[in-house]
Design a protein around this nucleic acid. Structure first.
Length: 350
DNA sequence: CATTCGTGGCC
DNA sequence: TGGCCAAGAAT
């Protein structure tokens, strides 16, 4: 038995029962693959079920609003995936007659579908022999073959890709690809379960006792620290939000009026300064109150956040038309990043 | 091609 | 606790 056969046999006996494994519908496979990009299976399952329930076809997705799609994606992170999927659904509808292409050159044109997702859809939904190389495959194959150079650069990725291409079962590519990924997720995990591994006798890293040193990765850049001051501006039972319609984190999501500072700074006196008027075009508020401070961690940024409550007695004079006045009941209609969403669950807000 | 895009779980 | 990492893609 070759390696693929061993993995597929293991997979048949040990695979998890996941909702997207009950279909070969290319649309569903596409949705699942995008949701699972850089996302754990446990976190993605409910989003997948909600997504295919609300948008069961390409056409229904293509006719959705971005705000609704982002709302469904809220809390999952990497929101460009949702924006790209909406764009992609229109591409599929118009250029490919509503059908996910079954060939590489066309499917790779679709927004949000890169080398991995193209290969995953083609192999799983259409039985085409394209090898997937994701984080699992990089780990499994680098250990198995004792590949001790960095895998998170192009050269390393290309080396592993060649191995993956040589290894693939051309008669059962979808099953093969899922088997090796599942094996990486459950057995050859970052902290591996070598005692349960069916490949340990032929695993170079295991034989050389360097499992904990492979895969090799180059260092990541240090997190940037940013200081956000969010103003929960309140006018009786209404408050103000705005859409982040500019190039930064959380693009096209909603949040509160924000003042970013370059260092840690308490802006409790801002209503007595000209700065308040410059930003909000608003006469001096009735009162401002510090609420709390939290730290929100992103992959490349650490957001040190302070929330303030500002009570005003007149409407915001919003010459830039930047703010939307809403009540608490309307919150669920708008997609917020989790930093803001968590605020809605605090004692202050309720 | 290195960086940037969230969030949550794990140790 | 801080760092690593998860079915990656766009720029």
């Amino acid at each position: 038995m070759n390696i693929s056969n061993i993995l597929q046999k293991w997979y048949a006996a040990n695979k998890r029962n996941l909702p997207w494994r009950q279909t070969k519908n290319p649309y569903y496979i596409w949705i699942s693959e995008v949701i699972l990009q850089q996302t754990r299976v446990a976190q993605g399952i409910s989003y997948y079920l909600n997504f295919i329930k609300k948008y069961p076809t390409v056409k229904l997705l293509a006719n959705a609003s971005e705000k609704d799609v982002l709302n469904l994606w809220q809390g999952l992170g990497y929101y460009s995936r949702a924006r790209n999927m909406l764009y992609a659904s229109k591409q599929i509808l118009e250029k490919f007659n509503g059908k996910i292409p079954d060939n590489y050159s066309q499917i790779i044109e679709i927004k949000g579908i890169g080398k991995y997702t193209a290969s995953a859809i083609l192999s799983i939904a259409y039985d085409k022999p394209y090898p997937v190389v994701d984080g699992n495959v990089l780990r499994v194959l680098s250990r198995l073959y004792g590949y001790a150079k960095p895998v998170n650069i192009n050269a390393g990725y290309n080396d592993i890709y060649k191995i993956a291409a040589k290894l693939i079962d051309k008669k059962n590519p979808g099953n093969h690809n899922q088997a090796i990924m599942e094996f990486g997720a459950l057995i050859c995990s970052p902290v591996p379960y070598c005692e349960n591994c069916i490949l340990k006798l032929i695993c170079v890293a295991y034989k050389n006792k360097i499992i904990d040193k492979i895969p090799v990765k180059t260092k990541k850049a240090k997190q940037k620290i940013r200081y956000f001051n969010y103003f929960f501006v309140q006018n009786k039972n209404s408050f103000y939000i705005r859409k982040r319609n500019f190039k930064d984190i959380w693009e096209n999501m909603y949040d509160f009026p924000l003042i970013e500072t370059k260092k840690k700074e308490l802006l409790i006196n801002i209503i007595n300064s000209d700065k308040w008027y410059e930003i909000f075009q608003q006469i001096k508020p009735k009162k401002i109150k510090y609420i709390n401070s939290i730290v929100h961690i992103l992959t490349h940024q650490k957001i040190k956040t302070t929330f303030y409550n500002v009570q005003i007695e007149h409407e915001l004079i919003d010459t830039n038309n930047a703010y939307i006045k809403i009540t608490k009941k309307e919150i669920k209609n708008f997609p917020f990043p989790n930093l803001i969403n968590q605020f809605f669950n605090t004692q202050f807000f309720n």
